[in-house]
C-alpha cells in the first residue's frame, strides 16, 4: 500500500554545491523533482540573497514561482533564523523579535509556503504573539525540535503547553530526525580519527554510544584513557546527541506538520547507519502523518576535509531509501545531470 507520507528535499542538502555556485536554484529544484521529492523546503536566507537585511528582489521571487510550477513542485517551508543577537551586547527586545517573525511569515506567504520553521532557541512567547499574524497569512510556525533537545525536554514541554494555551493551530513542531541517532555515525568516527583521536578511544566512544552510557561518564573515561583535544571533543558529541525514541513523536502528532529527514550518510545499499528510518516511518504511519519528509543532508561538514561531498548522490540514495520504506513501486532516478562538471573535474 502506498503511504500518504510525501517526499521532499530541503535545499540545505545541496549547500556544498550551491555555496560554490556549481548548482543553481533550477538545478536544485529539477534534481529534487526528478527524484519524485516534490516538496521543496528552503532556508530563506540561503536561497535568496538579501533576506532579511536588505530584502529580496521581486525577480528572484518570480523565478522561484516559475521553477516551482515548471517542475510541478510544492513549496513546503521557509526556515527562518531570527537573529536575536543582532545587536552586540544586548538581546533584541521582545516586540522587535515578534515583528521580525511577522516579516518572515509574510516572506513565507510570498513564496507560497505552508510553514515557516523557527529555530529551537526562540522563546514560546514570541511565537504565540506572532500566531494571529500567521493565521491571517495561512501559515503555520513550526519550532524545530532538534538534538540535543527532544520531546521530553522541559524547554519543548514549555512550547507544547504555550501552544495549547494559545488555542492557535498555527503553532506546531518540526522534528529533526537527528534526535533519534541510534548509533554513532561512521562519518563522525572517521573524521575524529583523521584529526588524531587514537583508534582505541574512538572504538570505545562508539561502543559507549551503543551501550547508552551517560555522556559525562564517557568523557571522564576518555580523559582517563589519556584522551586530549580531539578525543575529548569526540566524547563530548554524546552531550549533544542521544538515542531518543521515535515513538515520543506520537503524543504530538496533531501539531507535527513537517519532518527534517536529517542524515549523515546513506550507503551504497541504501542504509543510514545511524538514524533508524524504518522505525521512524513506522511511527509516522502509526501517528497518521500525511506531510513531507524533507531530506536534510548534513554529512557534508563531516567529510569535506577529506573529500568533496557529493550531495546529489547522497540525496538520491536517501530518496531511494524513503521511497522503499513508503511502499512506492518506482525507484527514484535522476535523469538529467544535476550540474555541469567544472573544467578541472572534466579533465580528470
Amino acid at each position: 500500500m502506498t503511504s500518504k507520507i510525501k517526499r521532499g528535499v530541503s535545499l540545505y542538502s545541496y549547500q556544498n554545491e550551491t555555496f560554490q555556485g556549481k548548482m543553481s536554484l533550477e538545478d536544485c529544484i529539477r534534481t529534487s523533482a526528478e527524484l519524485g521529492a516534490k516538496g521543496i523546503e528552503i532556508i530563506g536566507e540561503q536561497t535568496f540573497w538579501g533576506w532579511p537585511e536588505y530584502g529580496v528582489a521581486s525577480e528572484d521571487v518570480d523565478q522561484w514561482h516559475r521553477l516551482i510550477k515548471q517542475y510541478d513542485c510544492t513549496p513546503v517551508a521557509h526556515d527562518f533564523m531570527l537573529d536575536y543577537k543582532r545587536y552586540k551586547g544586548r538581546e533584541m527586545p521582545f516586540e522587535e523579535q515578534v515583528a521580525s517573525v511577522k516579516k518572515d511569515i509574510e516572506f513565507g506567504a510570498r513564496l507560497g509556503m505552508k510553514y515557516i520553521r523557527a529555530l529551537v532557541s526562540i522563546a514560546p512567547e514570541v511565537l504565540v504573539a506572532a500566531a494571529p499574524h500567521a493565521e491571517e497569512h495561512n501559515i503555520k510556525i513550526l519550532i524545530e525540535v532538534h538534538a540535543p533537545l527532544h520531546f521530553d525536554h522541559p524547554w519543548i514541554i514549555r512550547h507544547a503547553e504555550a501552544f495549547e494555551k494559545s488555542g492557535s493551530d498555527a503553532l506546531g513542531f518540526l522534528p529533526d530526525m537527528g534526535m533519534f541517532l541510534f548509533a554513532f555515525p561512521p562519518v563522525w568516527k572517521e573524521k575524529f580519527l583523521r584529526i588524531g583521536v587514537p583508534p582505541a578511544i574512538a572504538d570505545y566512544v562508539v561502543k559507549a554510544y551503543d551501550d547508552r552510557v551517560l555522556s559525562e561518564y564517557v568523557i571522564l573515561n576518555v580523559q582517563q584513557m589519556g584522551g586530549t583535544g580531539p578525543a575529548i571533543a569526540m566524547a563530548e558529541t554524546l552531550r549533544h546527541n542521544a538515542a531518543f525514541e521515535p515513538k515520543r513523536m506520537l503524543d504530538h502528532m496533531s501539531r507535527i506538520h513537517n519532518i527534517h529527514g536529517k542524515f549523515y550518510e546513506v550507503t551504497e545499499d541504501y542504509v543510514e547507519p545511524s538514524i533508524p528510518y524504518d522505525q521512524i516511518v513506522q511511527v509516522l504511519e502509526q501517528g497518521g502523518y500525511e506531510g513531507y519528509i524533507c531530506s536534510e543532508y548534513e554529512g557534508n561538514r563531516w567529510i569535506e576535509d577529506a573529500q568533496e561531498p557529493d550531495s546529489v548522490e547522497q540525496v538520491r540514495r536517501q530518496q531511494v531509501m524513503l521511497a522503499r520504506l513508503l511502499g512506492e513501486s518506482e525507484v527514484p532516478t535522476i535523469k538529467t545531470p544535476a550540474f555541469a562538471p567544472t573544467l578541472t573535474e572534466a579533465a580528470e
Binding site: Q15, E45, Q46, D83, R86, Y87
Partner: peptide
Amino acid sequence: RLPYYRGLGLSM
C-alpha cells in the same frame, strides 16, 4: 566567503 550554510547581517 563566509564559512556558513547561510549569510549573516554585517553586525554579527
